[in-house]
Amino acid sequence: MALLEIRDLSVEFATAGGTFRAVDGVDVSVDQGELLAIVGESGSGKSVSMLAMMGLLPWTATITAEVMRFDGHDLLGMSARQRRRIIGRDMAMIFQEPMSSLNPCFTAGFQIKEALRLHTDLDRRARHARAVELFEMVGIPDPEARLRAFPHQLSGGMSQRVMIAMALACDPKLLIADEPTTALDVTIQAQILELLTTLQQEQGMALILITHDMGVVAETAERVQVQYAGQKVEEQPAIPLFSTPRHPYTAALLAALPERATERRLPTIPGIVPGQFDRPPGCLFAPRCRFADDRCRSTPPKPASPELGLARCHYPLTHAAEAEA
């Protein structure tokens, strides 16, 4: 049985301009100890779907799902209080902006020990020892001093390490890393990714890595799920995904990788992800798709077979040659 299973998750926000469907029928499934990457451009609902699962969305969000199950618990029927016992202990999350994700008024030590106080029955001394151990584990030099430091005294990379240590405090079964490296310098990015994948293997925990960088996916992921405008448009193991992407959007993302660029300029996909007011009636990718025809523009496509990467497309790509195009 999968550690995490979500089927047909939708999230709608009540906004001033009416409801906005930020996540639209997404399935996610992760096994024990597995690494899943979720890729997609900004605004594709990656964060919102994970926040929905953690119960961290504001009250303006309405969450519906057929199944939302984690480690034998039904997340849907659960009260907020019951969910709080799981969150931060078995299921933890780290965020894109490490600097603003730590509370500026409390020391790093207070913030990590708080998680331990909440979910374990370690005493003061044991919590301190555990905090030091965690800081060492995530490669923070001089842990004793860093525990006493306030967030503004830490660099971005160091803050993200603190966030990771906090998330790992209670040995979670699942860690969700929401673009953990986007806000960091390139060299630090590689270090943090390396740290996360190492920890995932050593601790045997499952890791969901959210990113919009296909390069990161190529280096780390086992399985990849591509999201676009709130929908899952494709899902494949990493290697076939790179060699034979099935959805034109995936192919376009891959073509936009800097290594594959033939020109000097960094290639991008023309156009933007549709927002609240410009959602097309048919395929959501149609306005940007080079294969789009009238059928695409009028009828929303259904996911294709698993062999075709569950591609949500009327005309999934079948040739590697086409994908390269």
Binding site: L56, R81, I86, I87, S100, S101
Partner: peptide, 12 residues
């Protein structure tokens, strides 16, 4: 953001 972090810890 740090309030989201606090909630993600499971704080009441």
């Amino acid at each position: 953001d740090y309030i989201r972090t606090a909630r993600a810890k499971g704080l009441g």
